[in-house]
Amino acid sequence: MAQDMTEKDIMKMEVEQLKKEVKTERAPVSTSLSEMKTYIESLTPEDPLIKGVPDDRNPFKEKGGCSIS
């Protein structure tokens, strides 16, 4: 798409994009991190990667084994 455009058109697109980015609301990292930490910690009790999956609901549990004697 950019190959069909003139240099002026490309620069106009870049300026428009920069105008959009300037209007984006920003938050300090310290605030964002504390909110993220609170959110993650609130979901920890339901997280199957931390809590584990009960054997009766685990679709990947081995159904049976094979033994060679």
Rank of each mutant, 00 (worst) to 15 (best):
S32D: 06
P48V: 09
K51H: 10
T38E: 01
D56M: 06
E7T: 14
S69N: 15
V15Q: 07
Q3E: 14
E46F: 08
P28T: 13
K61S: 05
S69V: 15
G52V: 13
F60K: 10
E46K: 14
T24Y: 00
Q17N: 15
D9T: 15
E7G: 11
Y39D: 06
C66S: 12
E46I: 13
K19L: 04
I50R: 15
E14S: 11
G52D: 13
K8T: 08
E46G: 11
P45D: 01
T31E: 06
D55C: 07
E16Q: 13
I40S: 03
L43G: 06
M36R: 08
E41G: 08
E62C: 04
T38G: 01
K51I: 09
I10Q: 06
Y39H: 03
V22W: 02
E14R: 14
G52P: 14
K20Q: 02
M13K: 05
K20E: 03
G65P: 04
P28N: 12
T6W: 03
E16L: 08
K23A: 06
D9S: 15
E62A: 05
Q17S: 12
S30N: 13
V15H: 04
P48R: 09
V29W: 00
I10K: 12
G52W: 11
V22L: 05
F60V: 07
L18D: 09
M11H: 08
D56F: 06
K19H: 06
S67L: 13
M11L: 12
R26M: 11
Q3W: 06
G64I: 11
I50H: 10
M36H: 03
S34F: 01
I68L: 13
V15T: 10
T6V: 05
S32V: 08
L49F: 00
S42M: 07
T31R: 08
D47W: 04
N58F: 02
M1L: 05
L18H: 05
G65N: 08
T38K: 09
P59W: 00
L33I: 15
L43S: 05
M13D: 03
D47L: 04
E35D: 14
A2W: 14
G64S: 15
I68A: 14
M5D: 10
E41F: 07
A27F: 07
V29C: 00
V53Y: 03
T24F: 00
D4Y: 00
G52Y: 11
T24C: 01
Q17L: 11
T38D: 03
A2D: 15
G64A: 15
S42P: 12
R57G: 07
E25D: 09
M13A: 05
K37L: 02
E35F: 01
L33N: 10
I10N: 03
K61N: 09
L43H: 04
M11K: 14
I10D: 02
D9R: 14
D9H: 15
V53H: 04
K12P: 04
D9P: 12
P59H: 01
Q3I: 13
E21P: 02
P48W: 01
K61L: 08
M36K: 06
M13V: 07
I40A: 03
I40E: 06
C66G: 13
S34W: 01
I68H: 10
F60L: 11
